[in-house]
Amino acid sequence: MIYSMCFMLFLVGLYGVLIKRNIIKIILSVGIMGYAINLFLILIAYQEGSDFPILTPAETSKAMVDPLPQALVLTSIVIELSTTALLVALAIKIYQRYHTFDIRKIRRLRG
């Protein structure tokens, strides 16, 4: 049930990519889809009533959540930032050349 709610968040991002014509909105939608994927992986990793995966000197015998998806999501979050930065650079470049953010108007080639 909670997974399907997370999938709804993904679909909101998909809706934005499909419907919006403004490049900034498309960049935001791609970001939303990335958030949904990261959240889904961490939801999979969660274990009921358990601790974060850091060993403390107190040696509590409590179970820990799955650390592997967390480590991979840590990588994915940072890569998402670099993706956003690259998309923003491309969008600025497109704006300088065509003076619009509308993806329908940037079709024609300009020397």
């Binding site: 900034i24 960049i27 935001l28 970001g31 990261n38 961490i42 939801l43 990793a45 969660y46 358990s50 601790d51 974060f52 995966p53 850091i54 959540v65 967390q70 999501v73 840590l74 979050i77 940072v78 998402e80 930032l81 956003t84 930065a85 923003v88 969008a91 600025i92 704006y95 953010f101």
Partner: peptide, 30 residues
């Protein structure tokens, strides 16, 4: 969800990406 390292990273990265997007809006005046 018991992922404090991720929460810290997400917090910093989110602020950075909002800054990048606002810089884009500023430099294009849209």
């Amino acid at each position: 969800l018991q992922a404090p390292d991720l929460a810290l990273v997400q917090f910093v990265i989110e602020i950075l990406s909002v800054i990048i997007l606002i810089v884009m809006l500023r430099s294009t005046n849209q």
